[in-house]
Design a binder for these strands. Structure first.
Lengths: 215, 215
DNA sequence: CAGTGTGAACCTTTTCACAGCA
DNA sequence: TGCTGTGAAAAGGTTCACACTG
């Protein structure tokens, strides 16, 4: 459907450019150069131009990019034009925090259901979304046809949950459990891994001088 | 301090190998081949061998890697041998979820303080850690000297918080706010970005056939 | 033999540098 | 003149393939 294949790192940066463009538009700035956008996105200007070139060319030479137009184009490429529905599996601390997250709705990601095993949570409403018994995943997914499932259960249950989601025909999964999951290739899969990030920080902390001398 | 420079993607995978090795050890498996480890980590075997080769060579040809020894070596390389202290700025839904996260302590990351602006939270204890007024960052950081700060405040405040942390001499920052932050290069910096991940999923959802025909 | 360790080939991504255009 | 768009070069990472060894 989309024009061409965009490299994965570029996809990630497009999301960041979109965020920067929203800010610029909020500030009533109508034109931005690759230099300025690069600075705001924390990358270099050639990178911005190369990234945007995957979407076609609509900068004006000698001027820059029209912010509204560029945001439209970036959003379109990311498929953000139409709203997306999602479910969250696991309504514990993390799941609840995610359900309460305002950013979802603002960006067009709409939670339509949550699941948990805890009897006390089942039937309750968190962040305007109902919590269902986890055994009803297949049934509810059939009814609501969400496009995205977020896994926010403890690591030992994550693979099992993933299997059920896949069996129920989910098209994409975002996993927060610190666990390698086997997911069939036709399902879009991404991972957010707090504990990996901490390990990485730990590594780079050690690489730096253990005790700094001066600023 | 550390032997050699390890590529960033390898650092991330080392964290995953460590996780797999813990599992293997829990299951009383003492030797593992690069093939088996690769399968569990979701990468290919050459990758595993190349990654491990950055740490030296201690596999036994024809046999595999001794799990205990390898885990020790990987943990050491990641700097996980010694415990790390951290603070969390922002004790809202997300910050509280993070404070409650058991995985921290298990892996040797110890929260020593939290900060918030909300008067109702200040003075309370969440997950065994006290919540301080955010204006006391400098003072408390001086006293507790944490190595890592986690930013879990709303995006508009994240840069301001980051500036204070840097001014207070923090050595590393993990940012959860969906916001590009300017951090001086001597501070180790990583970002966890939910909204970016969702955008990426949205992109790949669009790339796939909009309606699937068969399995 | 089975499985590691690693140079070399391959592939992807980033950066450079400049032609081309408003 | 100033800034985009883009080939080409450089850098960085992954995979291959095989010599080597317990």
């Amino acid at each position: 459907v989309n024009p061409h294949d965009i490299p994965d790192p570029t996809v990630s940066r497009l999301s960041i450019y979109a965020r920067c463009l929203e800010r610029l538009i909020k500030d009533k700035i109508n034109v931005v150069s690759s230099d300025e956008l690069a600075d705001r996105a924390g990358v270099n200007a050639a990178q911005v131009r190369k990234d945007l070139s995957y979407l076609g060319s609509f900068g004006r030479r000698g001027v820059g990019y029209e912010t509204h137009h560029l945001l439209d184009r970036v959003s379109y490429s990311l498929g953000l034009s139409k709203p997306r529905t999602l479910v969250i599996v696991g309504a514990g601390k993390l799941g609840s925090a995610l359900l309460a997250y305002k950013g979802f709705r603002e960006k067009g990601f709409k939670p339509v259901a949550a699941f948990d095993v805890n009897k006390e949570k089942i039937g309750k409403t968190i962040g305007s979304v109902r919590v269902y018994d986890i055994s009803r995943i297949k049934e509810i997914l059939k009814k609501k046809s969400p496009e995205i499932a977020i896994i926010a259960v403890p690591a030992p249950y994550a693979q099992e949950v993933a299997n059920e989601l896949v069996a129920a025909g989910i098209r994409s999964i975002l996993n927060f459990a610190p666990m390698v999951l086997k997911i069939p290739p036709q399902v879009v899969f991404r991972q957010v891994d707090l504990s990996l990030e901490l390990d990485a920080i730990s590594y780079y902390l050690n690489k730096r001088v253990p005790a700094e001398k001066s600023a």
